[in-house]
């Protein structure tokens, strides 16, 4: 059986190993997905005589600000965890990846409180288009956070045994997962001003 080339080592002319090119393509499609939704937001907003249609928006800006910094911190720690692996420091990886996981959990808990406060006040996606797009965008972003959380948890927990057998491939996995995590972070950095501040 022939091995698939460039699974671990980068191909010289592209400078990428297979999974890294794959994740960039995946992120390109994600950009189009959220791009489509943001365009929908712009069109709905432009088409509405007042925005939000139901008057002043009732979103919790302080909590969202905490979440923004929370995600930025997690983006930084996931890079640190990758660097730790590059420097052969497995313990450092465990610590920094652990902080990343904690940050993602905190994000979801805060999001849960925001959602339940809205529903408690009788605000649903069907209330008007502003809350509709708010729930859709943040909900879809939340799903992405959960996805990233599961993958990162796998790398931190059961998947870590690959470090013993194929350290280089494991480091690549962390890098790819980190690229995805940066994207999730970046989406939030766009969502926060768009929905909460503007």
């Amino acid at each position: 059986m022939i091995e698939i080339p460039y699974n671990v080592k980068p191909r010289q002319e592209t400078g990428l190993y297979n999974a890294k090119l794959g994740i960039w393509l995946f992120l390109a499609s994600e950009v189009m997905l959220f791009g489509g939704l943001f365009s929908a937001y712009v069109l709905l907003r432009v088409g509405s005589p007042v925005w939000p249609p139901g008057g002043e928006a009732q979103l919790n800006i302080p909590l969202a600000t905490i979440n923004t910094f929370n995600l930025i911190l997690s983006s930084w720690t996931i890079v640190k965890s990758w660097i730790a692996l590059k420097e052969n420091d497995f313990k450092g990886f465990k610590t920094y990846m652990g902080i990343t996981l904690l940050c993602s959990l905190i994000f979801l808990v805060i999001k849960y409180f925001e959602y339940s406060a809205k529903l408690h006040h009788g605000i649903f996606p069907s209330t008007d288009n502003f809350y509709g797009i708010y729930f859709t965008l943040t909900g879809l972003h939340g799903l992405h956070v959960i996805g990233g959380l599961i993958v990162n948890f796998y790398l931190w927990g059961p998947g870590k045994k690959m470090w013993k057998s194929e350290p280089e491939r494991f480091t690549n996995r962390v890098e790819v997962s980190g690229l995805y995590w940066h994207f999730v972070d970046l989406v939030w950095i766009f969502l926060f001003p768009t929905l909460y501040l503007l």
């Binding site: 499609s29 189009m32 288009n129």
Partner: peptide, 25 residues
């Protein structure tokens, strides 16, 4: 396929919201 399909996925999500969560996108 990579670049053109996701906007339809976005549209499908919005239409699912319209149908299930009764939004009015």
């Amino acid at each position: 396929l990579v670049l053109a399909f996701p906007p339809l996925e976005a549209a499908a999500v919005l239409q699912i919201m319209d149908r299930i969560a009764e939004t009015s996108f």
